[in-house]
Every structure is written in structure tokens, then in C-alpha cells.
């Protein structure tokens, strides 16, 4: 691809990976259904979630127009289920501790600078705060043990996992998703199985 013909939109506007969900094994069907209809976890507060949603909109503006998961609910579930119990590289706190403390610090920083919760700031102000975290330790009075760059990288990494675990995002990039018990049978140049996204590049052949 070159810049000139790069798609600003998906190559696969009509592909819907979920149309194939009945072909998936039962365990995977259940895993994806639970993700799409995630229940409330019991770790993040309403305030955490408001800040998180506002941050996610800043970090992934156009992804959010395409994805359908409730990021805050899936992340809350993952924290509740102890999926964020390891330390990121170079850190001595769990990912869970970094994200929860970071969300609280973000709120404090917003109030410190603008006298408003982060979620109520306008986009420019939100981006200005977010930008100041990248590669920086952060406002010393707010970001003590957990530095702002660590929160930024940890949160972003976790959100990337959730976004690219969304079947609607899979459809957008043309990823065929779960493939058991059916597998792939058509192999060879430009051979694909019927249930995958229809090739978009036939004019190139």
C-alpha cells in the first residue's frame, strides 16, 4: 500500500465476522458472547469509568466509532477476574494498581488545572493533559509512586487488547476470527475459504 491508495476506511465494508458465530465451537461462542455483553465488574467506580471512557475517546477516536464493546465494563471485568495482576516491564506495581491509581490521579490533575472532572473537560484540554503524560513522570504532587508515563503505557496496552478483541474490529480489518472446528482448507495464492471476507483486491490480479 502507498499513502495514495491507503484506505481511510475498511477494505471490507460488508464483512461481519459475527455472521459466522454459529459455526464456532461452543466454548468460543460463550467467550465472545460474554465479552459482547459484559457484566459490571466490581472494582472500578462510576467515577473511574467516566474518566476511563473519556481517555479511551482521546486515545482511540476512530476505533471507537467502529468498536462495540463496552471498554470500561470489559476492563472492569478483567480487573475483577485478576487478569491484570502482573507487573509491566520496569514497574513494581501491578497493572491493576497502576490503572486504578492512574485514573484517580487523572481526575485530580484535571481538577488541579481546570477545576472540573476529566470527563467534563473539552477535548483540547483532555488531550493537553494526556500529551503531558507521554514520556514524563507527571505533576509531582499528583503522580508520586506511579508516574504518568507508566499509567499512559499500561492503560494504552490494556485498551489495545480489548479493542482488538472486538469482533467488529476484526470485521473492519478482515480478520476471520475463531476458526474451530472448521479450519482453513483453501490454500494457494489468492485462495480463501468461502466464509472469510471476500477479497477486495481482485482488480489487482
Amino acid at each position: 500500500m502507498t499513502k495514495d491508495n491507503h484506505p481511510s476506511k475498511t477494505y471490507y465494508p460488508t464483512y461481519d465476522v459475527l455472521s459466522q458465530k454459529n459455526e464456532w465451537d461452543n466454548v468460543t461462542q460463550q467467550v465472545i458472547a460474554e465479552r459482547l455483553h459484559s457484566k459490571e465488574g466490581n472494582v472500578l467506580s462510576a467515577s473511574h469509568k467516566r474518566t476511563l471512557q473519556a481517555l479511551a475517546k482521546c486515545l482511540f477516536p476512530s476505533h471507537l466509532g467502529e468498536q462495540t464493546l463496552s471498554i470500561s465494563m470489559v476492563l472492569d471485568q478483567r480487573i475483577t477476574n485478576k487478569k491484570l495482576s502482573t507487573f509491566p516491564r520496569g514497574a513494581r506495581f501491578t497493572k491493576e494498581e497502576i490503572i486504578i491509581q492512574g485514573l484517580e490521579n487523572a481526575e485530580r490533575e484535571s481538577i488541579f488545572h481546570y477545576h472540573l472532572p476529566f470527563s467534563q473537560l473539552d477535548k483540547k484540554e483532555q488531550l493537553s493533559i494526556l500529551e503531558s503524560w507521554k514520556g514524563n513522570d507527571g505533576e509531582e504532587t499528583i503522580w508520586n509512586a506511579i508516574k504518568s508515563h507508566l499509567f499512559y503505557s499500561t492503560l494504552t496496552s490494556e485498551l489495545i487488547k480489548i479493542i482488538y478483541a472486538d469482533p467488529h474490529i476484526w470485521s473492519t480489518i478482515g480478520f476471520a476470527g475463531p476458526a474451530y472446528p472448521r479450519g482453513y482448507y483453501a490454500f494457494g495464492p489468492h485462495q480463501f475459504d468461502e466464509w472469510e471476507a471476500k477479497p477486495h483486491d481482485e482488480n489487482l490480479l
Binding site: T28, R35, K82, T86, F87, T94, I162, A165
Partner: peptide, 23 residues
């Protein structure tokens, strides 16, 4: 058959999930 899934996020459970400091 019962505990695996065709899914990246779900199958992170195969990785070590306890704290380790990496410096």
C-alpha cells in the same frame, strides 16, 4: 476441548499471571 478457545484475549490465561519485576 473444554478450557481452550479460539481467542487471543481469553487464552492469555496460559501465560504466567503473578507479579515479577523486570528491570
Amino acid at each position: 476441548e473444554k478450557d481452550f478457545a479460539s481467542d487471543e484475549l481469553e487464552m492469555e490465561k496460559l501465560f504466567w499471571d503473578e507479579p515479577r519485576i523486570s528491570e
